[in-house]
Structures are given as C-alpha cells and as structure tokens.
Amino acid sequence: MTDIRFDFSDKTAIVTGAASGIGQAVAQELAASGACVIVSDLTAAACRAVVDQITEAGGRARAFAADVSDETAMRALVDFAEADCGGLHLAVNNAGIGGPSLPTGAYPVEDWRRVIDINLNGVFYGMRWQIPAMLRAGGGAIVNMSSILGSVGFAHAAPYVAAKHALLGLTRTAAIEYAPQRVRVNAVGPAFINTPLLSDNLSPEVLAGLAALHPMGRIGTPQEVSALTCFLLSERASFITGSYHLVDGGYTAP
C-alpha cells in the first residue's frame, strides 16, 4: 500500500456500510493512507472479508458487525474503536438502503420506517457517540453520506429522499455546534454509483438509462466518491465544515 494520498497514520476511523461499494472503497483508501479502520457492516463475515483485503495489502483494520439503526450497537462500535485503537478521530456514516420503488400515496409505512431508521436515525446514532469520542481525542472529522437526492426530488423514493434531505440539516447543525471544538462535519452527495446496490438489482438496460441521466454519460465509481470523502476527512480540508459536496457527473447541473 504505497500510494498514500493523505496522512492518517495516527488516526482511527469508523466506516459504516463498509462491506461493499462506497464504504469499502473509503475503508481501503483510509487504510492505504495509514489509518486504523474499523470496518462495520451488518454481518461479521462481510466485515472480516474487507479487513482481510486491507491487512493483506499492509493496512490496519478491525471488524465490527453492527446495525446502524440500533443505538446500542452504535455506542458499542465507538466504544470498540476507543478501546481497541486508543481513540476515534474520523467517521464516515455511509450505511444506507434504498427501499421499495412506490409512489408516496402507496408507500408501506413499515418500509418508510425502515428506510428512515437506517438512512437518517442511523447517522444520528453514530454521531451521538462519535462526537463525544472525538472531543476526548482533541478533535476529528465526520463525513455523512447523503446523495444527489439530498438536493432534488426523485419519484417513487419518498423516504430515501426525505432522509437524505434531513441528513443535510443534521450535518450542518452539528458542524455549527462543534466547530469551536475542532470537530468538522460535512456531507457528500453521490449520484448513481456502480455499487452492488445497483449492479445486483438492475438490468443492463436500466443501468444504461441511469447513466444517460448524467451529462458525463456514465455512472460513477466508488473510488471517485472515496477520493472526495477522504479529502474532507483530511487536514487539507481544515477550513471546510457544514458543507455538502456533490459527486454527480453533472446530474444536478441542468
């Protein structure tokens, strides 16, 4: 692991939803840049698979299976980072789900609750315990994974769009509250990205249609999202907080 773009050698990072896609790319880049990364996702086996990839490449990582919609699990995740790695300095609240594609007037209430629990409440539960840990460590940086749908609507995705919009308010509020104490909080808004969430569930024809929505004519990669995320976590972004940064191939430009 020789391509170190940032220096996180004295940092511990938590990445949720890290078993695949954007979360996996972020965990790998943080580790390549020297961080001790806590790889968190729903199942221990999936977490360990990413940890094995990181350690085989010479990085440092630990596995911790957790459901972000469980506040107790989020507290335990932060406790683990402090106990196992000596503190917490960085966090990427990335875990999320899409939910069924249905119009608002027909959306199942239980599916609404599940999407909100994971995509919004899960981020709050993470920050609720990450921020005090970062204060104990003397400061830190958080990136919350929003979406282009944090700034625009999208038919048949009411809870997802609502959660991603609300996530921006949560991010900005925390950024204001903790800026004096050297904790920065930002959000990233990817467009459609080539992750298992898309490739495993959509036909090539649908994927081609999604690609056409972007002026660049393609879907993005997890590594392109990771590059911005890791920059925002780094000291190179030391005067950036409370911001929302798009990685969208021009999707929101028209």
Rank of each mutant, 00 (worst) to 15 (best):
A158E: 06
A158I: 06
A158M: 13
A158P: 01
A158N: 03
P159R: 00
Y160V: 00
Y160G: 00
Y160H: 12
Y160F: 14
Y160A: 02
Y160D: 01
V161H: 03
V161S: 06
V161W: 00
A162Q: 04
A162D: 03
A162I: 01
A162L: 03
A162R: 00
A162V: 14
A162M: 13
A163H: 07
A163C: 11
A163S: 15
A163D: 10
A163Q: 09
K164Y: 02
K164C: 05
H165V: 05
H165Q: 06
H165W: 15
H165Y: 11
A166H: 03
A166L: 09
A166S: 15
A166M: 04
L167W: 02
L167C: 08
L167A: 04
L167R: 05
L168H: 04
L168I: 15
L168W: 02
L168E: 04
G169P: 04
G169M: 10
G169D: 01
G169N: 06
G169L: 10
L170N: 04
L170T: 09
L170F: 11
T171N: 01
T171C: 01
R172G: 11
R172I: 03
R172K: 15
R172M: 14
T173K: 08
T173V: 06
A174Y: 02
A174R: 01
A175Y: 06
A175E: 13
A175M: 13
A175D: 07
I176K: 13
I176R: 13
I176H: 10
I176S: 08
E177L: 14
E177C: 06
E177A: 14
E177K: 07
Y178R: 05
Y178N: 08
A179C: 12
A179L: 12
A179I: 13
A179Y: 13
P180D: 12
P180T: 12
P180E: 11
P180Y: 14
Q181A: 11
Q181Y: 14
Q181N: 09
Q181T: 09
Q181R: 15
Q181V: 10
R182I: 02
V183K: 01
V183I: 15
V183C: 07
V183T: 07
R184S: 10
R184G: 11
R184F: 12
V185R: 01
V185W: 01
V185S: 05
V185H: 03
V185M: 03
N186F: 09
N186H: 10
N186K: 13
N186T: 13
N186I: 14
A187H: 10
A187E: 07
A187W: 09
V188G: 08
